[in-house]
Amino acid sequence: MKLKLKIWRQKNSTSKGSIVNYNVDNISPDMSFLEMLDVLNSTLIKNDESPVSFDHDCREGICGSCSLYINGQAHGPDRAITTCQLHMRKFKDGDTIYIEPFRATSFPVIKDLVVDRSAFDRIQHAGGYISVNTSGNTQDANSIPINKTDADSAFDAATCIGCGACVATCKNSSAMLFVGAKVSQYALLPQGKVEAADRVVKMIDQMDLEGFGNCSNTGACEVECPKGISLDNIARMNRELMKSKVL
């Protein structure tokens, strides 16, 4: 396959970036999207040019590192996948492909396609945990009865890999699907209920502090989420916040 790439290049976090055109040749339809970028970078290095920086790690859809906005969609034109799981067979020979970093004021560009998503870490630090007093009397988790529906919903919420596609695809750069998933995964379980009221307030406070936008329920985040995190988690988070403030 021959492709024309339009890639966002930005030297560092303070410089002004722009779209730069590249042509790539001999791309196999069986390559992953990141492998296609590897091919491009090999060529750039051979030509003594700066390779395109992009985030990646596990390359099997688990770590949440890869974060590209491809042809106007987070993680590209497929559903329930990360960029590393996107294959070149999704494109046609001669296609023009736009590749941009995830855009949000809270996700500043570090270089080229690499963005700083540490805002998510700070939200997690604010309350996305359970304080367990391990004084030697910790109850075996398997001995605590949890109904199947709650266990399944908590598990589904916990599959969020924090890639940031929800923020990137949201027209308001809202992080509510991410925060909703993190709030839900604990609030649904008995171990997490103890701190549920505090947790939701702290995490939302931090989310607002980071400058993420408001959710306007477009549902784009749910569609683009590689793990299929449901909008129900946002509804649950809203309810948890109201409960914590009103009750």
Binding site: Y69, G72, K171, T218
Partner: peptide, 19 residues
Amino acid sequence: RNNRSSKVKYAYNNGGANS
């Protein structure tokens, strides 16, 4: 407020694909 949270816009955005 929402406009403030995303100052740099995408060169190509396909909003119709997911909402």
